[in-house]
Design a protein around this nucleic acid. Sequence first.
DNA 1: CCTACCGATCGGTAGG
DNA 2: CCTACCGATCGGTAGG
Lengths: 210, 210
Amino acid sequence: MAAQPADSAVSRSAVSPAAVRDAALTLFAVRGYHGTALSEVAQDLGIRTPSLYNHMRGKQDLLHEIVAETSRQVLADYAAAVEGVEDVTERLRRAVETYALRHARHRREALIVNRDVGSLVEPARKEVLDMRRTHERAIRGLISEGVKLGRFHVESPALASFGILEMCVSIARWFRDDGPMNAEEVARQYGEFALRVAGYTPEPNVHSTH
Amino acid sequence: MAAQPADSAVSRSAVSPAAVRDAALTLFAVRGYHGTALSEVAQDLGIRTPSLYNHMRGKQDLLHEIVAETSRQVLADYAAAVEGVEDVTERLRRAVETYALRHARHRREALIVNRDVGSLVEPARKEVLDMRRTHERAIRGLISEGVKLGRFHVESPALASFGILEMCVSIARWFRDDGPMNAEEVARQYGEFALRVAGYTPEPNVHSTH
DNA sequence: CCTACCGATCGGTAGG
DNA sequence: CCTACCGATCGGTAGG
């Protein structure tokens, strides 16, 4: 008789802001922001649409939180990756590895950021694009620095940084946790790809390797 | 007095199926398929929404035409690019150059294919994904062949082909016709990036270059 | 090419 | 957490 959640999609009714965000994350990643109805988010949580508003401010706000938080983390990842590392080659390698790793570990967020950032209303859109631009310029700066030092060889550091970053983004499109390669291994190889694109050539063999 | 088009968005009322597709192309590329209303397409053409149906079968069909036609052209481009070319390095370079070139010259189509292919209903979706998979496997095959011949050096041809192709796709995100680099120049450099990712090492210098 | 109109669904609010 | 309900808008059709 009691109107309990019965046999809902999530079974237990411990709906929280985090649970709403997680359900939205999955649906936005698959169908896109405009392709997802809040009624679908509610259904996945086993509640009615209006009840969502106890846990969020609105659909747009949900997107904003996902995209802004992810973008902040990308910048934090970068800072942590290059901190205390002097060599420009290693700085680039680590920066790319951490970026690649994030796209394997947080696929849904990555897909949403790249697909739906344009659906954010101002000023949120501009804020996020600024963070992304800051990150791209950091990578580009590493490449430029390496070129000046004679460690890298590219005609256009901008072209190389665009290419490297988008290569990493694509990981979110195909990576599977149960696939043949784990996230760390993928990240390592993409770090290597980045050095190749940057035209890294190992130092001439002054001391033979064996 | 006559109810002529007046001062509509396109001025002249020569609306045709191609004009509708072109207007949709622009809007889908900017706002996404689900983010675009047919009323916006009509407005850009200076007509009312129902009049669109004289030139198209429906919104979904519009997306299908755009995505399927583009995917067919990608395969045709590839075939033409490698035809008659024997050397595997040159085959990869040309295949990537033509793919990159398409993403600079047909930015709207590329953005829509990559963002909205998931919004196609079956069986259209599967057909398009099959074409894309065929293309990816062709690129992967070139890399594998080069590895066998000792011309390329990668741990995973699949990882390399994913990275190379997505790098090219990203061109559609930033390329501008009035930018500092023209499409051919961008394509040439991405062709070079592809060889680098594939671990291409030029033949040892048997005949010195000068 | 239009006006008039359809049922469906959208995000969101009122008020418990 | 719910039911009841809102105005707006969606893609699409009827019938000129």
